Amino acid sequence: MLPTPEPWPLLLDEARAYPSPHNSQPITVRVHDGRRAELLYDLRRGLPAENFGIPFGNVCAGVYLESLATVGAAHGWSVTPDLRGEDLDFGATARHQSLGTVTLTPAPVIDRARADLAAFRRRRTSRRPYRNIPVDPAVLAEATTIAADAGHHFGHTARRALVGDLVRINQETLFDDLRDDAVHAEILAWIRTSDRQAEATRDGLSARTLLLPGPLLGFALRHRGMWDLPLAGPLLRRIYLSTMRGVRELGWLTGPFAGAADHVAAGRVFLRIWLAFTKADVYLHPFGTVITNPRSHEAFVSAAGIDSGENRMAWMLFRYGHSAEPPPALRRELSAMLLDGNGAPA
Rank of each mutant, 00 (worst) to 15 (best):
V301N: 01
D307S: 14
F270M: 15
D149V: 08
P3L: 04
D203Y: 01
L330R: 15
L2I: 10
R124V: 11
I110W: 06
G225W: 15
A346F: 09
D203F: 00
F257I: 02
L162P: 07
A261Q: 13
A344H: 12
D33I: 10
Y240N: 14
A107W: 00
R268M: 10
L83H: 06
R114C: 05
Y64L: 03
P326F: 14
L339Q: 04
S126V: 09
L217K: 10
Q197M: 10
L250R: 04
S335Y: 09
T101Y: 09
M226I: 09
A69L: 03
G72K: 03
G85E: 06
V59L: 15
D82A: 12
E310S: 12
A107F: 00
S308D: 11
T201I: 02
P134G: 03
E50Y: 13
L250D: 02
F287C: 01
M316K: 01
A94V: 15
F52T: 12
D13G: 12
H32V: 12
G225K: 05
I27L: 15
R45N: 11
R35F: 04
G309S: 06
A161T: 14
G151I: 07
G251Y: 00
N293W: 02
L2P: 10
T209D: 01
I169G: 01
A200L: 08
F287D: 00
A49H: 08
H285Q: 05
R208H: 04
I110T: 08
G100F: 13
R16S: 05
D340G: 10
A232D: 03
H22I: 05
E298H: 10
G72C: 07
V71W: 08
I133H: 04
Y283D: 00
V183R: 07
F257N: 00
Q25Y: 04
L210E: 03
R179D: 13
T173C: 02
R160T: 14
R196M: 09
S296Q: 00
K279Q: 15
L12C: 10
A143Y: 01
L271Q: 06
A260N: 05
I191F: 03
G76K: 03
L271N: 02
